[in-house]
Nucleic acid binder design. Structure first.
Length: 942
RNA sequence: GCGAAAGUGGCGGAAUUGGCAGACGCGCUGGACUUAGGAUCCAGUCCCGCAAGGGGUGGGGGUUCAACUCCCCCCUUUCGCACCA
């Protein structure tokens, strides 16, 4: 041997680690823990491409480094194996998804294992394992058993006073009138408060997939998976009350060490806004005064009542500018306000919008449509009668599903008003520069004085803040009052009259949790049947001791296109009797996100058959200290699991409020797609690389390469097996990191891989004797030799830099440092053994197989997995004489050698004395000299 | 449209607090060793220029002795959201 033979070395060491269970993690209160987690993969049939192991490589390097620093490391791996793709594939091929899932997992496990990651494989599991499903269902039932008490005050672990907490449903106060109506009513009342609840609401129905989808799974009116059209359908579905946790989900972001962009996205997704709810009277005109007086007495009611239209606005200060109202077409009061002669037209518009797909609705945005109902509302601030319209630009699912339209100060309202000739009334004074800009866009001679008259001609609404105008009644005036003060003033006035109140809304909707699909966890709920055998609307949870509820074996698991989903066809499975009563099982399943919502907790105690995890182990390992994965999960998985975690926290099952302390998103790895002059994609096998250019091996034509996202259709997917087979795992891992910063998007280059491969070969030859058949040291490596000054300086500078880089996950620069080290020491006649040992230890987290082998060559019997990380001595990196650049007017003109401790004056003297500098200063006057000790000298002359 | 991030050689990318721009690698050029080189080693490689010298971190301005780094304006790219009242 031994020329460097990665495959032999790698398979041998992987076997060694596996047989010795080198990376098994056990709780040890004497050692500081660190929990490092990868977002576990979905085992697809295609297996892993070179993009997948990027994050895994980073976490593995970090974990191996931390073990050498003496930390107790938890680093597990598993599979998120329920979900649509496996099921779609199963349907296409007729194979049961359990079979394909098992096959895909084996393949991915093989791929991951051959990269030599230091996972504790004893903790491996799949979300589809019956034992895991059991506890996923257990958590669902915990959600079902919990209600959110918005008034509950408590102190969080950081000592802050908090408001709003999940509590056991048994603690929900039952109002006397409900209790008086009997046990069934109490059950229904409780059901309406649970965090897991059924509700009939407009949902995203995707007929191609035969299931409903969560808002987060719909992109521009199409399904995220498969890009199929999605429509809005009214269906009874399971929801999780994530909106109850909206405030806490936003507030607690502050405590997290996450990328600012991801926090921002979550904040935007929750979309919390503050404003006011305002009631408009829609009854007879002469009834308005009576209505107002009764409101002044009763105050603002929880529910608006029959002759009232409730709106939500973030700009209550513009109430005097409301010139019309708009209801969502689906709003329940549409019938009530519609005048007889308008019914046909209104019905037609409602039918048209209902039939529209989400995609069409998104596409039709901008071109406002709507119909006048013939009805009127009375503006509570001034008694003005204003028309009520319906239009699809108002969403039924946000706020109250109705708005007051202020066209002067809202762009959407203005577009609508201009289209239908509705009046525009200015109530906020825009600043002068806005007026000037608006004037440039068409309005002539626009000033604060002429603005109210000309506001209807302007193409743009002024939506900003400013002093109020035309906004006064007998009791209150907002004229001249800045927006920030006007809002609370008018809200307080409304509240006094029982006409409105301050309110906050979120863009976030409750999480639509049921799917009409086969390959997911069954929802463990039973529907009670009446004596005639029909569901009576009462439900009960499956007993905890009965969990897991497993999927029935079925030949035909195709989507049915019906709300019941394919499980409805499992006739025998559905019917159950409990306590002498007949029930039907819930036939909907959970979405794919369910399993990934809590897997990080199960990893703390994955084989526990008594409970989801041992609280003591949870307290030891949690929270996850470093979580690495793709940014595509910014609002889906990461928001959902934070929500579940908070519920688990409220119910006392976890000790931390947040699951993931530090989050890092690895960047996407791009690939180059090569096309010929006709724009046709040429596959890799058929390409010849010469002189840095690419040629079609068949035609000889030059090809153009473009860096693009890897995708099957572009034919540019590089399976991870390709670089592993050609160069080995250590090279592959190393290149994954050497490409650039972990977080940035970067292109894969096969030539770049070659570079790191050369580096490992050079490292090998630096230490190992290539000529010898046995594993023997290179003759230049000298066991007894004491490193000289320069060698010590290079060594310790390397240790210092690499250590810093490992801490900050800057593996690309860490590798560069090691390359410099090798460049330096291969040029040495003698290589002191202790320098070589430190090098091998530093290389070990990144290229562990070759490092273990070289460690053995250096005479060690034990694996280096737990060998102490080299420590750096500042005394060796300090130089007594430093080489300092001298600038003249900011340009480097020479260098001087000065004592590292030299004072400003000494440096100045040396600089001015340097002959080259003197030449540059000829004929000029030195005006100023800046000397930074140990850094540089700058002479200002002129 | 709104929000966020980023623009540095032929390419991927380096540059603690403002202090030598281009570390390291790829590619390329020349050389050595070789039957051979897609192995290895040595040297060179930001641009213009024979050189002296000049220019240079998307563009324009500013602060400073000194700006990739800080401030203002603009351009481009990527990502996220997108009728959320």
């Amino acid at each position: 041997m031994p020329a460097y033979d990665p495959h032999e070395i790698e398979s041998r060491w992987q076997r060694y680690w596996e047989e010795n269970r080198t990376f098994r993690a056990t709780e040890d209160s004497a050692k500081p823990k660190i929990y490092v987690l990868d977002m576990f993969p979905y085992p697809s049939g295609e297996g892993l491409h070179v993009g997948h192991p990027e994050g895994y490589s980073a976490t593995d390097m970090y974990c191996r480094y931390q073990r050498m620093r003496g930390r107790n490391v938890l680093h597990p791996m598993g599979y998120d194996a329920f979900g649509l793709p496996a099921e779609q594939y199963a349907i296409e091929t007729g194979t049961h998804p359990a079979v394909t899932t098992e096959k895909n997992i084996s393949n991915i496990r093989r791929q991951i294992k051959q990269l030599g990651f230091s996972y504790d494989w004893d903790r491996e599991f799949s979300t589809t394992d019956a034992e895991y499903v059991r506890w996923t269902q257990w958590i669902f039932l915990l959600l079902f058993d919990t209600w959110f008490d918005p008034d509950c005050e408590w102190t969080d672990p950081a000592g802050r006073r908090r408001r709003g907490k999940g509590r056991p449903i048994a603690e929900l106060p039952i109002p006397a009138p409900v209790a008086a109506r009997g046990e069934d009513e109490v059950r229904r009342y409780r059901d309406s408060f649970r965090l897991a609840y059924q509700a009939e609401s407009p949902v995203n129905w995707c007929s191609a997939l035969g299931t409903v989808l969560a808002d987060e799974e719909v992109i521009n009116g199409r399904s995220e998976r498969g890009n199929h059209p999605v429509e809005r359908v009214l269906l009874r579905q399971w929801n999780l009350r994530i909106t109850a946790y909206a405030d806490r989900l936003v507030e607690d972001l502050e405590t997290l060490d996450w990328p600012a962009a991801i926090k921002e996205m979550q904040k935007n997704w929750v979309g919390r806004s503050e404003g006011a709810e305002v009631d408009f009277h829609i009854g007879a005109e002469d009834d308005f005064d009576r209505w107002r007086r009764s409101r002044a007495r009763s105050g603002f009611p929880e529910a608006p009542g029959p002759d009232t239209l409730r709106v939500y606005t973030t700009r209550p200060d513009t109430l005097f500018g409301a010139t019309y109202m708009v209801l969502a077409p689906e709003h329940p009061l549409v019938d009530r306000v519609t005048a007889e002669e308008r019914r046909a037209e209104i019905a037609e518009y409602r039918a048209r919008t209902a039939a529209m797909s989400e995609e069409d609705r998104v596409a039709g945005r901008g071109e406002k449509t709507g119909v006048f109902t013939g009805g009127y509302a009375t503006n509570p601030v001034n008694g003005n009668r204003i028309p009520v319209w319906i239009a699809d630009y108002v969403l039924s699912s946000y706020g109250t599903g109705a708005i007051m339209a202020v066209p002067a100060h809202d762009q959407r309202d203005l577009e609508f008003a201009r289209r239908f000739g509705l009046p525009v009334r200015a109530v906020v004074t825009p600043p002068a520069d806005w007026l000037k800009l608006a004037q440039g866009k068409g309005g002539a001679a626009l000033t604060a004085d002429t603005y109210p008259e000309r506001v209807g001609e302007l193409p743009e609404a002024y939506a900003g803040e400013g002093p109020g105008m035309q906004s006064a009644n007998d009791e209150i005036s907002l004229d001249g009052v800045p927006t920030a003060e006007a809002k609370p003033a008018i809200t307080a006035w409304l509240a006094r009259g029982g006409l409105g109140r301050a309110a906050a809304k979120t863009r976030l909707r409750d999480w639509l949790f049921s799917r009409q699909r086969y390959w997911g966890e069954p929802i463990p709920i039973l529907h009670e049947l009446d004596s005639a055998g029909n569901p009576n609307g009462l439900i009960r949870a499956v007993g905890l001791e009965e969990l897991p509820v497993l999927l029935p074996e079925m030949e035909d698991f195709k989507p049915t296109g019906k709300p019941g989903g394919p499980l409805e066809k499992a006739v025998a499975w559905i019917r159950v009797t409990r306590d002498g009563k007949e029930y039907l099982r819930e036939t909907n399943t959970m979405p794919q996100w369910a399993g990934s919502c809590w897997y990080y907790l199960r990893f703390c105690d994955p084989r526990n058959s008594e409970r989801p995890w041992d609280p003591e182990k949870e307290r030891y390992w949690m929270p996850v200290d470093l979580y690495v994965g793709g940014a595509e999960h910014a609002v889906l998985h990461l928001l959902y699991s934070r929500f579940w975690h908070k519920v688990l926290f409220d119910r006392g099952h976890v000790s931390t409020m947040e699951p993931f302390k530090k989050l890092v998103n690895q960047g996407m790895i791009l690939s180059v797609t090569y096309r010929n002059s006709e724009g046709r994609i040429v596959p890799y096998r058929q390409i010849r690389f010469e002189e840095g250019k690419a040629f079609d091996a068949e035609t000889g034509a030059e090809l153009t390469g473009e860096t693009e996202k890897m995708s099957k259709s572009r034919g540019n997917v590089i399976p991870v097996d390709v670089p592993i087979q050609r160069y080995g795992s250590d090279t592959t891992r190393l290149y994954e990191m050497f490409m650039g910063p972990l977080e940035s998007t970067k292109p894969w280059s096969m030539q770049g891989v070659e570079g790191v491969s050369r580096f490992l070969n050079r490292s090998w030859r630096m230490i190992v004797d290539e000529e010898s058949d046995a594993l023997r040291l290179n003759e230049r490596v000298r066991p007894g030799a004491a490193p000289d000054r320069e060698e010590l300086r290079v060594l310790h500078k390397t240790i210092q830099a690499v250590t810093q880089d490992m801490e900050s996950l800057s593996f690309n620069t860490a590798i560069s440092r090691l390359m410099e080290f090798v460049n330096f020491f291969t040029g040495r006649k003698e290589r002191p053994l202790e320098c070589m040992e430190s090098f091998v230890l530093m290389l070990a987290p990144m290229a562990p197989h070759i490092a273990e082998e070289m460690w053995r060559a250096l005479g060690h019997e034990q694996s280096l997995a737990y060998a102490p990380w080299p420590s750096f001595e500042p005394k060796y990196t300090e130089e007594s004489v430093v080489d300092v650049p001298v600038q003249v007017n900011g340009k480097v003109r020479g260098r001087i050698q000065v004592d590292a401790q030299a004072t400003r004056e000494q440096m100045e003297q040396a600089a001015l004395g340097d002959p080259r500098i003197r030449k540059h200063l000829e004929g000029t006057t030195v005006r100023k000299v800046i000397a930074i000790p140990g850094k540089l000298v700058n002479i200002v002359a002129g």
